Amino acid sequence: MIVVMKRGASQKDIDHMISQVESLGLKANVLHGTERTVIAAIGDERVNGVQSLESSPGVDSVMPVLAPYKMASREAHDCTSVVKAGSLTVGGASVGVIAGPCSVEDEEQIVASARAVKAAGATALRGGAFKPRTSPYSFQGLKEEGLKMLATARDETGLAVVTEVIAPEDVDLVGEYADVLQIGARNMQNYRLLEACGRSHRAVLLKRGPSATLDEMLLAAEYILDGGNSQVMLCERGVRTFESHTRFTLPLATVPYLHEKTHLPVVVDPSHGTGHTSLVTDMAKASVAAGADGLIIEVHPCPEKAKSDGYQSMTFDQFDAMMKACRRVAEAVDRTM
């Protein structure tokens, strides 16, 4: 951490700041410049009280050097982590693909989807049993019945199940049926839910909030890691901007940036990121080219009859074509699918 003193700061102000830095368990290294004095605080700066130093007399600014997240950062773990959950592996040389409908609607629909996406090369099945919706009148999911249907689809195909959990009290129930707990964008900063998932033995897919910074996303992941669960995947699903031509704006620079900052694998959701089926294939290919460790894609037997997100869901044939296109891109960047 670097503490920059104001021009003309008195020796009393400097001595006070040295005392404050040392009271936090850090070593103060004072550098006297021609115009300003700078105090380099050496040690683990991620302690309580650091930010309050900026309110001290004579201080111009306080600049952290270390990332605020300890366990998620590459400072703690240099190699990219690999998350394994049943048939799904995310973070290795192969790009993991999670595919299926937005919502579980009935057993025939979810089993047919599981068979189709597996045949096309998907390595996990997605499907919502609990659906947080903007409108209280929209389809809210089949709850535990939907979870049972997902388990049936897993028994039929061997695909790992990825499904959303929306409340801390539901973590154990969803964990009985799912291989991966998905934390949706709306719940990225639901800290009680993050803590509950941190106590779970199930892998977690953490989606970025629509208005969240990447630091906020990584700090949300830190809650899960700090709870003892190291099986965490990050998911870029687009952010809200002034643009209206897509449902959200999908910033793929997120992928290499996160790879620089964290060891956690990064999944991209081009379905939510665009909101238009016609755009999903190209953004999926771009995601693979950018280095994504996984994709999560909405696929439905008949999108026009889907109870949720049909406008961004692929048919089985469209998904199969997308997978073939993505494999060619993956090969070009030394990955497999």
Rank of each mutant, 00 (worst) to 15 (best):
I2A: 02
V4K: 10
M5G: 02
R7N: 11
A9C: 01
S10I: 02
K12L: 01
K12W: 00
K12Y: 02
D13M: 00
D13E: 14
I14G: 06
H16V: 01
H16K: 07
H16N: 08
M17T: 11
M17K: 03
E22L: 06
G25K: 01
G25S: 01
L26K: 02
V30L: 14
L31T: 06
I39H: 03
I42P: 00
V47C: 00
L53C: 07
P57G: 04
P57I: 03
G58M: 04
D60F: 04
P64D: 00
A67D: 06
P68D: 03
Y69D: 05
K70C: 04
S73V: 03
T80K: 14
V82A: 11
V83P: 09
S87L: 07
A93L: 10
S94A: 15
V95W: 09
V97G: 10
S103I: 03
E107M: 12
E107F: 12
E108K: 12
V111L: 01
A112V: 00
A112F: 00
S113D: 04
A119W: 03
L125C: 07
G128F: 08
T134G: 05
P136E: 04
L142S: 06
K143M: 13
G146V: 10
K148H: 10
L150Q: 03
T152P: 01
D155V: 14
T157F: 14
G158D: 10
G158F: 10
E164A: 09
E164K: 11
I166R: 08
D172K: 15
G175H: 05
A178W: 06
M188K: 04
L194W: 05
E195R: 12
C197N: 07
H201M: 00
A203H: 07
A203I: 04
V204I: 13
R208V: 12
S211F: 14
L218R: 05
L218C: 11
A221M: 11
Y223T: 01
Y223H: 15
L225T: 02
G227E: 02
Q231R: 14
M233D: 09
C235G: 13
R237V: 14
V239W: 07
T241R: 12
H245S: 15
R247Q: 14
F248H: 14
T254W: 08
T254A: 15
V255R: 04
V255H: 04
L258G: 04
H259M: 09
E260D: 13
L264T: 09
V266W: 09
V267H: 08
V267M: 09
S271T: 13
H272Q: 13
H272A: 11
T274N: 09
G275D: 12
V280A: 03
K285F: 06
S287M: 04
G291C: 03
G291P: 05
A292D: 00
I296K: 09
V299F: 11
P303E: 09
E304W: 08
K307P: 00
G310N: 07
Q312S: 11
S313C: 07
M314Q: 15
Q318F: 02
F319C: 03
A325I: 00
R327D: 14
R328W: 07
V329A: 06
A330P: 06
D334R: 06
D334M: 02
